[in-house]
Nucleic acid binder design. Sequence first.
DNA 1: ACTGGCAATTCCGCATCATGGAATATAGGG
DNA 2: CCCTATATTCCATGATGCGGAATTGCCAGT
Lengths: 260, 260
Amino acid sequence: MSDGTEASRPDVPRAGGVQSLARAFGLLETLAETGGEAGLSELADRTGLAPATIHRLVRTLVDLGYLRQLSSRRYTLGPKLVGLGETAARQFGRWATPVLADLVTEIGETANLAVLDGDGAVYVAQVPSPHQMRMFTEIGRRVPVHCTGVGKALLSALPPADAAAIVARTGLPAVTSTTITDPDVFARGLALARERGYVLDEGEQETGVRCVAAPVTGPHGSAAVSVSGPLSRMDDTAVARIAPLVVAAGRRLGTLLATA
Amino acid sequence: MSDGTEASRPDVPRAGGVQSLARAFGLLETLAETGGEAGLSELADRTGLAPATIHRLVRTLVDLGYLRQLSSRRYTLGPKLVGLGETAARQFGRWATPVLADLVTEIGETANLAVLDGDGAVYVAQVPSPHQMRMFTEIGRRVPVHCTGVGKALLSALPPADAAAIVARTGLPAVTSTTITDPDVFARGLALARERGYVLDEGEQETGVRCVAAPVTGPHGSAAVSVSGPLSRMDDTAVARIAPLVVAAGRRLGTLLATA
DNA sequence: ACTGGCAATTCCGCATCATGGAATATAGGG
DNA sequence: CCCTATATTCCATGATGCGGAATTGCCAGT
């Protein structure tokens, strides 16, 4: 192996794992973090692997269509990933949609399901409100955790230390005028969320949109549900009515996730 | 190796490829084809690999978050794939969006970019028309090649033999009343497309939607642009005006693809 | 409850396959 | 035009992934 200190790197995620696989996916992730484009030596620097090794892995991925090589000899994520990702999202959607649909009929606002991926949240399912035909499908969209309902709900379900680590890495950049940028305020918000079982997003990501979110409870890689709508319809009494429903939906989804 | 006849299977895509990788992605694809959920032995049947081998690969993928194991011990595509796919799509979108946006401002209808993946077409970028808020974002959506503008444009850019092979595999199932189901008619359509440099889709995938598409020219894994809108706005004179613009956009995208 | 059968998981010795250092091509920069 | 940085190919080595066989665990049938 490359260096004397074995198993010090998160290359091998667990005993018995296939490392060429772990390394290959590591490369894909590295590429994604770099903004989706990188040269071979840049990958070598970031991963610490030998250029020859990277080249072989990367060439295989190119042959398979999961990576694309530009004429500049740099590499980008390939088209097949788009297809796979979409199928994966659809898969989540399949079992989640009924529950989300129930929420929408009870509440009348758009319902979303998101999962934690890396340090961000990714929407994996959505049932749009019957009200507005507006608002594009957000499926696949990646959003920051600190300024979204689902994001905060995801964090609230994590061990506080892990949540803090994520926030430390991403910071609390202001997105709108109401985005929470003070770490202390944010931490108190999370504590309140843990206590109540749900979170509010007061236009912290998009002005005028209020959002109620709850973690999906269960022993798996975290997920969260949310319901969001315009301030005009989402007043305090509405929120009071909605919150328990969202929390219940989170619980139901958690059961489904573990069962189905 | 398992059997005497080596290299007879498309397991190893090319000499020098990393086989565990090819196999792992094969499993992901198999899973996607199965509808996103399968048990270990089902995977073993479909891929012909030894259960132990599959289990090791699959366990690694689960550890990495690209696969999820349900309590029924069956496996599904994991959340991380959603994130990766989204990043990949965004990557395509980044350089394509400006060109598509130009098309939209010139034409006023929704513009799409799709790539060929396997025997289907996958939308990788879209700029929606300012007109209608309807029609969800199709990014990541996989559509048949025979009844869509982008699909036929992709085929028209392929060596005729390759195009024929794909059509032979997928067949020409009717999706709407105008879907072309006769192989001869279809072949003539492709020939005309090659000659003119663009294709029309006359509601062959969705009734009432007309679409002009052109291949993205270049020496890479094929892509295609399209512009689509309701029949009411897409009359013959509009198409005559639009077609050259779409063809030009295809050329520009081709240059960008090769360069960027 | 007991049992039979099937599916998932773990074990383990063997040989294959991935590995990475060094050598070779190729692209930019001066 | 040469020179440097980067990508790619070669190849001997042994670690690594392979798969047959044994084990465990889950249900369905009675």
